[in-house]
Design a protein around this nucleic acid. Sequence first.
DNA 1: TATGAATGAGCATTCATTCAT
DNA 2: AATGAATGAATGCTCATTCAT
Lengths: 216, 216, 216, 216
Amino acid sequence: MTAASAHAASRGRIDKRHAILDAAITVFARQGYAQACVKEIAAEASVAKPTVYNHLTDKANLFRQAVEAAADALHAENLAALDGLTRPGDDLRAALEDTGRRLLRHHCSERSTALRRLLHAEGTRFPDLLGLPSVDPRTLATALADRLARLCVTGRLRLTDPDRAAEQFLALLTGPVDLRSGYAGRSMTTGEQDGIARAAVDVFLSAYTGSPAPPE
Amino acid sequence: MTAASAHAASRGRIDKRHAILDAAITVFARQGYAQACVKEIAAEASVAKPTVYNHLTDKANLFRQAVEAAADALHAENLAALDGLTRPGDDLRAALEDTGRRLLRHHCSERSTALRRLLHAEGTRFPDLLGLPSVDPRTLATALADRLARLCVTGRLRLTDPDRAAEQFLALLTGPVDLRSGYAGRSMTTGEQDGIARAAVDVFLSAYTGSPAPPE
Amino acid sequence: MTAASAHAASRGRIDKRHAILDAAITVFARQGYAQACVKEIAAEASVAKPTVYNHLTDKANLFRQAVEAAADALHAENLAALDGLTRPGDDLRAALEDTGRRLLRHHCSERSTALRRLLHAEGTRFPDLLGLPSVDPRTLATALADRLARLCVTGRLRLTDPDRAAEQFLALLTGPVDLRSGYAGRSMTTGEQDGIARAAVDVFLSAYTGSPAPPE
Amino acid sequence: MTAASAHAASRGRIDKRHAILDAAITVFARQGYAQACVKEIAAEASVAKPTVYNHLTDKANLFRQAVEAAADALHAENLAALDGLTRPGDDLRAALEDTGRRLLRHHCSERSTALRRLLHAEGTRFPDLLGLPSVDPRTLATALADRLARLCVTGRLRLTDPDRAAEQFLALLTGPVDLRSGYAGRSMTTGEQDGIARAAVDVFLSAYTGSPAPPE
DNA sequence: TATGAATGAGCATTCATTCAT
DNA sequence: AATGAATGAATGCTCATTCAT
């Protein structure tokens, strides 16, 4: 076997594993853990059932790996959405709104919704998942708190507890979305999301800035 | 059969139905819909399996009825928590905090947590449940919006969109709780809950009152 | 439910259990433990597969119970074959031959052959079975030794170690049978069996009678 | 390819085949035919699964070849144990006891026990195996009968049916061993074996010698 | 009405066997 | 010749649901 073909082969193996994990979240999200059957996941990934077991051992492990992969991806995207806050430029409001909008885009994506549903549903039966940083929502909150603390140091915000402020910012974004979506149902236009983001920033700034929030 | 005994009998029938529904949420909450087996529910209710079917037809219907009953009870409690806002007396802040605390008590209760978990997990497979007023979180939001609108009319608050303000108030309460609890894991002291409620009211008032929020 | 019908019902339950155990040994004997599938056992017993599980929990337990029942039955028959030795009358040779013939009849029966095959095959995986008195071949040997000891006391035999003599008597009976049958294959006429029994008694008596047995 | 390397290669091939067969009996003996999986045999032989198939076609064939090889080896040993009976010298009793002890050593070896277990368990599913001379116990019995017949001709024994006598000699040896071992369980000290061999010879000689067995 | 017993359908998992390399 | 990967076929077991009592 040449180096190239070896590389191709291991590449193929990784691709297949990826395809299976991808199929897995899709099906798990659609059916739930218990209702999802491995046969269906295999079909969705266009492989035979034992291939799934060859690559991932177990239904439980399949679930874990699939959730972990999805959570990692989403978490990375969310972290990236915070970048604009590190050096916000002149317009803090705009930077916050931009971050808010991006976070809401992710939060409302089908993947994210499905992932949250799965974690809610099966978290108690897979406690190890809840310990993963990319799964624990406090990881994002802490990262946001870091940004807010810098903004406080540079005098752009006035706050005493960055963690609490970060929680509240996130709450003001996702809370209304979750509330309107009911339990994993209705989707939402980007316009609606933007309105929520703007309102969240309004409240946030009026609380954590010397001057009251500007009228709409 | 005398009228009295008929009454007693139907009373017994209702009691048994109640016992079954009670056992059902308990077990469903512990195991999830698919993993819960009717046998276990019957055992928890101390009846035989066919009795469950006699009273409730179906596993699906059993789930529906159990969830509906639990949701109704919780919803009533939540509505009651809003009462203090109708005529808040002098101290609006105190009234809001009290409402916040009470809502958080409910929100953090085991029953409520379990119910949300079940709705998240199975909502898509029981869309009819999501339409129930006591299940739809917008029902509570609307009721709160009503109170806030009155407060606006009486000049205690300054807001243009009571629905949005209500959403945000609820978000500031439950968002931090959910965030810290991870997905249905860690529980929370009442002290923590009270801190969250106070912080929520701080932010809320600073956004929706003329004067800036008082420092902590 | 009347006492009679209750009795009938429990009788029916026992009958069904019996039918399942019966089907089980048949199939296990035909296929071996691992190759036998519960579905086939259920079919042989004319019940549905879950009924087998309702009555007997497990494939392993099914095996255990079936083997135990068969072993008990065979053991009882074998013990009965020893009865003629307790008071042998004038003709000791005839009594021994009769016992020998009866033991060989049992030993050559399809049930007994199948049972020995199963125990040989799966004994290591079901060590608890090997501890059962009706399974342990030493139980029969000891019972025979008891009879031989009585015959020694009454002067009909001359032997110093009844256990060893019993072992040898049984060996002289079953050894040639097993040898000729190959490993659970060829069956054997009763005439052949009788010849073996007579030869066994010849050897046994010449060792343990009139003419002095060699001192050890 | 040179003749030497060809030779080396075919030697390597044979070695590998041997290693596989060796691993096979080990695993088959431990697990039984059906429970043994080819993967485990391959692992025990330190080769990949397809290599097993390359060399031995089939699980069934693998079993056959492995059993046949083991049976051949054991049979050769058993035949060798009979050598001392061809010209027994002065002390017939000693020669018989020596043969008996050696046969019991083999009979009690782990390999032999395992082989018998496998043949008992799977004999009916591999009838061709039962036809092999080294598997058929009558082969050894006949060889022994030959020796006994010679001893009869030379006046050392008095018997009319050498086949029957041979069967009985073997029965007196292996019967007590099998009886005490239960079904594939308890092992046995060489002292115990020697006692059984001596007792077997006692009985055998008292039956097949004109005069009673000579005292020790 | 309440229940012990029975069942049909489904699912996770394993394994002998075969390709492609 | 040897192997990693893939698959079709089976099998043990569970569970929602229905009868018969």
